[in-house]
């Protein structure tokens, strides 16, 4: 399982939908997903993108006046969960 992924967050669901449409138009892969808990207490929508596309997408957003709230790198903290600890331990054994 990958250890981190990147998302853009938005203030409103509507901004997320506009982002998805325009970024897809530019031929870049994007997937909308529920806002990760680590970034926000809202139950809004975020857009998952490839981490190395950050600058290119930011440039497109600026050019096409797409509003985003921020760019975040989300690190999966699997090691905190008891069952992943258990699994890791098993692997080591």
């Amino acid at each position: 399982m990958e250890e981190f992924y990147c998302v853009f967050s938005f203030q409103t669901v509507n901004h997320a939908l506009a982002f998805e449409k325009m970024i897809k138009e530019e031929g870049i892969e994007v997937k909308l997903m529920p806002m990760p808990r680590q970034i926000s207490t809202s139950c809004g929508t975020a857009a998952r993108v490839s981490c190395d596309m950050e600058e290119i997408i930011k440039e497109i957003c600026k050019r096409r006046s797409i509003e985003t709230e921020g760019f975040h790198k989300i690190i999966n903290k699997n090691e905190n969960l008891w069952f992943s600890k258990f699994m890791n331990k098993k692997k080591k054994d």
Partner: peptide, 21 residues
């Protein structure tokens, strides 16, 4: 902590086809 939301659950199914909420 969880952000459980009855409206968000169905909204995401319809809008972004995601079952998380």
């Amino acid at each position: 902590r969880s952000r459980v939301c009855t409206a968000g659950g169905f909204r995401d199914i319809i809008l972004i086809k995601d079952t998380f909420f």
